[in-house]
Amino acid sequence: MAVSNLEMHALFVLGDVRAKLVKLFQSRYVYVVEQTAEGIYMAELDTTTALVVDDKPRLELKVGDHFRAAVLPSREGGKFEVRFRDIKATIHGLGEYAYVATDLGNGVVFKDGQGILMVFAAHEALQGGLAKPLKAAVGKAAKWRKGELAFKPSE
């Protein structure tokens, strides 16, 4: 991929989101949350056994075989694609992501239609269940009211 295919705005904005994800994956305890109005899926990514590859020239981040994030060219000037398992979220820019911080860690929440995908790096392993702390982190940016997503972006 040639970086020149991206608009400079998309390159900086989406490249910054990718850089934040790279920083999150430097943590030992990384959790991924997929949530819709119908339900929630949570998983822990083991960064000690899964190879974390930060491919700066291609603006891509890969974690094992299950997670991939990359800045890609598009007709709109650029897009950020996040893949986790069978989930694929596409972010085109401002208003579709939010940075969240809690006492337990930091994360990035991506809005994709009526669902979200969050990557959360905890300072320590989450004890006593994942649901309460991860839902609290998601709740800082996204809430569902009567089946409709209300999202509060960072920018």
Rank of each mutant, 00 (worst) to 15 (best):
A101E: 15
R18L: 08
G128S: 12
W144H: 04
L104V: 05
G39W: 10
M118R: 05
L24A: 09
H92Y: 13
L117R: 03
K143N: 07
E96V: 02
D112F: 09
T49Y: 00
G77T: 02
R85P: 03
L134K: 02
I91P: 07
K23I: 04
I91Y: 04
G113R: 14
R28A: 09
L104N: 07
L11I: 00
A131H: 14
G147D: 02
E60H: 05
Q35D: 06
D65M: 08
H9R: 09
G95S: 05
H92S: 11
I40T: 11
T36H: 02
I87E: 08
P133C: 01
H92T: 11
Q35I: 01
F151M: 01
A98V: 08
K56P: 06
A43Q: 06
I116Q: 09
V100L: 05
H92M: 11
A137K: 04
E7N: 15
V3E: 11
V32C: 08
S4E: 10
K135G: 11
L24S: 02
V52N: 07
R28K: 14
H66V: 14
P57Y: 10
A50M: 15
L51E: 15
S74W: 07
N5W: 14
V100T: 00
A43V: 11
I116M: 08
I116F: 05
D54P: 07
L126N: 06
Y29I: 04
L24Q: 02
G139P: 01
V30R: 06
P133L: 01
S154P: 05
V52S: 06
K152Y: 01
G77F: 05
V17P: 00
F67W: 07
L117G: 00
L24V: 04
H9P: 11
F151L: 06
L104I: 07
V53M: 15
T49C: 08
D86S: 14
K111V: 04
D65G: 11
Y29H: 11
R145Y: 09
Q35K: 11
A50I: 06
K111N: 03
A125P: 00
E44C: 00
K88L: 12
L117V: 12
I87L: 09
F67Q: 04
M118D: 02
D46S: 02
F80R: 01
F12W: 09
K135F: 07
R28W: 08
A70H: 14
L130A: 09
F12Y: 15
P133R: 00
D103T: 15
K143L: 06
A141T: 02
R75K: 14
R85Q: 15
D65H: 13
E124I: 10
A98R: 12
K146E: 15
G15V: 03
R58Q: 14
Q127I: 14
L126P: 06
A43S: 10
T90M: 02
R18N: 00
A150H: 09
D55K: 03
I91H: 13
V17W: 00
R75P: 12
T90V: 13
E34G: 13
A19V: 07
K111Y: 03
V53A: 12
G78A: 06
L21W: 05
F67V: 02
G93R: 12
K143H: 07
I40S: 10
R145G: 10
E7Y: 14
L24Y: 03
K23Y: 10
Y97K: 10
T49V: 11
